[in-house]
Design a protein around this nucleic acid. Structure first.
Lengths: 210, 210
DNA sequence: TTCCAATGTGAATGATGCTTCATATATTAA
DNA sequence: TTAATATATGAAGCATCATTCACATTGGAA
């Protein structure tokens, strides 16, 4: 299923001159716009090129085929998301665990919701691709960052950080994504996110020696 | 985006004779097999008909177009899933809240993993469709069932059942799905699911009057 | 300025696949 | 048995698109 040849998902050439970077950015931007507007089943190479103001051939200078374009777009997105999470983690070194979990929830929620349509469009676009490598890279970066953060907590030390860490990020990211995709009414959304922080704190309390 | 005309996603005709039911089942089964094997971008009407042992025209007797076939397939899947969850809820009336949350986690996890490839294939197939109505129906059924269950708990009464209920199912389903999609190694999977029950219990404990 | 590498072009190619409809067969009720 | 209804057929029509490649243009190093 999905795309068989992983290598072919990689970009064809890397821009060396400034104008090439401009071109690639234009192509990415055009792709996003078209994905948001029409979804992936109406994303054609011709339309992407047209909207980007380049010719189809140019697109093929950088991407072996349509799929690799969509793949690269999602790669960019996940890299940016990982960046944000890493920053949040760095900013909360030495904080309380409660502040840490709250910060993770907020950061992830904001990243998802500040451009809702883009988030949804990208998520849908990648469904038919084999994006496991992207997910793995993302998960690995996040894992490392949150682990270091939790280890630095000022109000707790853990017997088994990696277990607690994996649990917390799986629960937090899974729940936030679920809230996002369920399209809950705003009061419900806020309620669940608030309860989620309560739940994380209650969980962490069970590890406290009194 | 996605499919604009919602009505067109509905089946075209409903089977009245036995052979028609057989035909539809064959079409659904063929679709699942092809989705698992090749993914949606290689799902063609001709191939579906061929594998189902009918002609293309027959498929169009029941489905207005390819999308409505995929839509109906997911509708079936979600209905079956809701059935299972409702049964679990009925079987746990009057139980402890702890038993309830554990049962929900187990049921959902089993449903996802007993035919992993089918779960993944279906999930991917629906990405480009507007399946919000399906999600809403599913969420509404589950919500009702779990709410009734939690209200019947033998070891707790709630001030605000609907809030606790929404939180629990959002966290549980979100987390389980996240575990499933992350492809964690089995020991990690088991660990996170165990920690999740601990977390839910710790959360519920905060509502107990001591 | 010269020349090579980088970048950009887009008409043409080749292939795929959805959907229809005129027609045939099967089932059921009367 | 007959007529009405349900079900099944599949070749043909029509449209869409991904991708290539021979060629043009631009940038920058020497």
């Amino acid at each position: 299923m999905a795309i068989s040849n992983h290598n072919s998902l990689k970009p064809r050439r890397t821009p060396r001159q400034a104008r090439a970077t401009v071109t690639m950015d234009a192509i990415f931007e055009a792709t996003i716009q078209l994905l948001v507007a029409d979804g992936i089943h109406r994303l054609t190479t011709t339309r992407v090129a047209e909207r980007a103001g380049v010719s189809v051939g140019t697109m093929y200078q950088y991407f072996a085929h349509k799929e690799s374009l969509v793949y690269a777009l999602n790669e960019r997105y996940l890299a940016a998301l990982a960046d944000r999470i890493e920053i949040t983690c760095r900013n909360h070194r030495g904080a309380t665990v409660s502040a840490m979990t709250e910060a993770l929830i907020t950061t992830y929620w904001q990243a998802k919701t500040e451009r809702i349509e883009v988030t949804k469009a990208l998520y849908r676009s990648v469904a038919e691709l084999d994006n496991q490598p992207l997910i793995d890279t993302f998960a690995s970066r996040v894992n490392r960052a949150t682990m270091v953060m939790f280890e630095s907590a000022s109000d707790m030390t853990f017997q088994d950080v990696s277990s607690v860490n994996l649990t917390l990020i799986t629960v937090i990211f899974g729940t936030v994504r679920n809230v996002f995709e369920q399209n809950l009414a705003p009061p419900h959304t806020e309620s669940v996110l608030r309860q989620l922080t309560i739940m994380c704190n209650a969980y962490l309390d069970t590890f406290r020696t009194r």
